[in-house]
């Protein structure tokens, strides 16, 4: 056999990534000039994909959130030469979570700017991306922001407590990681030069807010559970004209709560907490639990 014939016999091993690095490099060089091999490799790769497809398994739910959070931070490569490029390939991830950019001037809180809720034991389904779909439209993809990441990381903690049972240790580990991210997020707000703190009459809680960071965090301990089972706490932004914008829902996890809102706080005159049916409301319906003037 001559050298090319030897190389040609490697299509299968190449398609299955079974070549040593040096062989792989040699074969790839050969592929550039051998249309026959290139075509065969393409067909064998499709075949291998069928083998893989039959092995598919549902991945852990938390994977999606981590992937979306990381994608929001990851710029795309330029198209290869020869691939027709469409204009306006804006780098930017999926609309992971609405940040300040989603806020409108009129209210300070557009519907799409629904804050990321963060609370142990509340609603594991209120994951990343949910806020961005409010009102049947999506926030346009945009440049990755630190906020996008932090909000996404914070949202991960929503799984805590909502899914008890099963592999507790793994979940606790994830929850701990997410909690650490949320706490880091809160630290950034709390250490902003213009950060101010207000006590909140909900267990031992306070709100830390920063106009510079366009964000506020409600953090508390010894918070009692909502009065009725099936109810949840919900945070609200109250504007000067009396209108309210919905914030995240949360229930205490071993008495602790942590919830974030993001947006232009200049228009917000007070934060309130009410009890709402599970899943939250678009306007306050339940009893007022706490209120803090900003």
């Amino acid at each position: 056999m001559n050298g090319d014939a030897n190389l040609h016999a490697l299509t299968g091993a190449y398609a299955l990534d079974a070549l040593e690095p040096a062989e792989r490099a040699a074969f790839e060089a050969h592929l550039v000039t051998c249309a026959e091999c290139a075509e065969e490799v393409a067909g064998l790769r499709e075949t291998a994909a069928r083998l893989a497809g039959a092995a598919r398994l549902a991945p852990p739910a938390a994977l999606r959130e981590r992937v979306l959070a990381q994608v929001a931070l990851t710029p795309q490569v330029a198209p290869a030469a020869g691939v027709p490029a469409e204009p306006a390939a804006v780098p930017g991830g999926p609309a992971v979570a609405s940040g300040p950019a989603g806020a409108t001037a009129a209210t300070g809180w557009s519907p799409a700017a629904a804050p990321v809720g963060l609370a142990a034991g509340d609603d594991a389904s209120a994951g990343i991306g949910a806020p961005a779909r409010t009102g049947g439209r999506r926030v346009p993809a945009r440049r990755p922001t630190w906020w996008g990441w932090a909000a996404a990381a914070a949202a991960v903690v929503l799984v805590v407590g909502g899914v008890l049972g099963g592999s507790l240790a793994v979940r606790q580990h994830r929850a701990d990681q997410a909690l650490a991210a949320a706490q880091a997020h809160m630290m950034v707000i709390a250490t902003a030069p213009d950060a101010v703190s207000h006590q909140v009459a909900l267990g031992t809680s306070h709100v830390v807010m920063s106009h510079a960071m366009s964000a506020a965090a409600l953090v508390g301990e010894d918070v009692p559970m909502p009065g009725e089972s099936g109810m949840t706490y919900q945070l609200w932004m109250v504007h000067a004209d009396g209108s309210t914008a919905p914030g995240p829902t949360f229930v205490p996890d071993r008495g602790r709560v942590l919830a974030f809102v993001e947006g232009d706080l200049a228009a917000v005159t007070a934060l309130t907490v009410t009890e709402e049916p599970a899943g939250g409301s678009s306007a306050p319906t339940g009893p007022l639990v706490a209120s803090v003037a900003l």
Partner: peptide, 14 residues
């Protein structure tokens, strides 16, 4: 033999 079995087998699967 290993190389050709991988290739033959994949072609047959295809």
């Amino acid at each position: 033999t290993a190389k050709t079995r991988i290739r033959d087998g994949l072609i047959r699967l295809r």
